[in-house]
Computed example of a mutant assay.
Amino acid sequence: MLERTSKDPTETAGVQPARHVPFRGAGFTPAASRWAGWLGLAAVLVVWQLVGGLALVNPLFLPTPAMIMRALYRLAASGALWQHVSASFVRIVAGWALGTASGIAVGFAIGLWRIARSIGITFVSALFPIPKIAVLPLLILWLGIGEQPKIATIALGVFFSTTISVYSGVDAVPRNLIRMAQSFDVPFPTIVRKVIWPGALPSILAGFRITASVALMLVVSAEMIGAETGIGTFVLQAGNLMQTDQLMAGILVLSLFGLAVGRLISLLEARLLHWR
C-alpha cells in the first residue's frame, strides 16, 4: 500500500516559502567603534617611530614621536609651555566669547526681523569673505599694540561664522510649528524661547565647532604677526631656528586644545539636545 504524504500548499502552487527579512526602517543611525580610532592612531605612531628610528627620514624634517614628547616635557618643565599656552588661551576665550555673543544677537535679528535681514545679510555677504587676519594691521593702528587687536581679530572671525549659523538655524525651524504657536496666541518672546531657540540650537552648536577652529587659527596667525608670547609665536620661533621637535610639540598642543574644545561641545550637545 502506498503511503500518502502531505505537502505544503505553497510548494504545490509553486510559491517559494516565506523567508525572514531584516527590519530596515530604523533610519540612518551611524555608529562608531569605541577603540578603532585609538588603535588607528597608535598604529600610525608606531610606524612613524619605526621610520624615524631606522633613519629612513632625517629627524630634522620629521622628528619621531619620542623626540616630540621629550621636547614637550622640557618645555613644560621649564615653564615656557604654560606661559605660551596661557597667553593664547586668554585671547581665544575673550575673542570667542565676544564674537559668539554678538553673532548670536545679530543672527537672531536677521532671522526674525525683515529690516535686519535686508541690512544684515548685505553686510555679512560683503565682509565675511575678507580674511580677518588681513585687517590686523589696521586694528593695531586703531587699538594700539597690545591684546586688543588680537582679541578683536578673533572676535571678527567668530562673529561672522556665528551669525551665519544662527540665522540659518532660525530659517530651518519648521514654519508649521511657529504658525501653530501663533494660532494659540502664544506671545512672540515665548515662541522665540520655546520654539525657535530649540529648533535652531543644533545649527548653533554645529557653528560652535566651526568658530572654535576659526578662533584657534586666528590666534596663531595673530601671534605670528605681533606678539611676544603665545603658541603662534612659539611655533614661528621654533620654525625659524629649525627646531622641528619643538615646532611639532607646539602643533601637538594646538591639536590637544582642539580635541578638548570638541569634547566640550559634544557634552553641550548631549546636555542641550537630549530631546533629539
Rank of each mutant, 00 (worst) to 15 (best):
F188Q: 15
R4P: 01
V106M: 13
S33Q: 04
F188D: 15
G144R: 02
S221V: 13
S221P: 00
A212R: 01
A43S: 10
I231Q: 10
V170D: 12
H274T: 06
R193A: 06
Q49N: 05
P149G: 12
T162N: 13
G169S: 09
M217S: 15
I119H: 03
L177H: 15
I104A: 12
L156R: 09
Q148F: 08
P174I: 11
L143W: 07
A249Y: 12
W275Q: 05
F123R: 05
F257H: 00
V135Y: 15
S266F: 02
F184R: 10
S88N: 13
T5C: 07
G120H: 15
F61I: 14
A43G: 01
I191H: 11
V47Q: 05
G99C: 05
A155I: 03
R276F: 02
P63E: 04
G199T: 11
F128D: 07
V44F: 04
D185Y: 08
A249L: 12
P63A: 11
T229C: 00
S183C: 14
P174N: 15
A101H: 02
I140D: 04
I225V: 13
S6H: 06
M180Q: 11
A126H: 07
G53N: 15
S88R: 04
R271V: 01
L39F: 03
V261I: 13
V158S: 07
I178C: 02
G103E: 14
R179C: 02
L156I: 12
R193V: 06
I133P: 14
V192Q: 08
S125I: 10
E223K: 06
A249Q: 12
L127K: 04
H84D: 13
F188W: 11
L252G: 01
L50C: 13
A181F: 05
M180R: 04
R117F: 14
L273H: 08
R114Y: 03
G52D: 05
I178D: 12
G169Q: 04
A270H: 10
E147R: 08
Q246R: 13
Q246F: 02
W48F: 08
V21R: 09
F160W: 14
F23W: 09
L216T: 11
L50W: 08
S102W: 09
T162V: 13
V214I: 14
A55I: 00
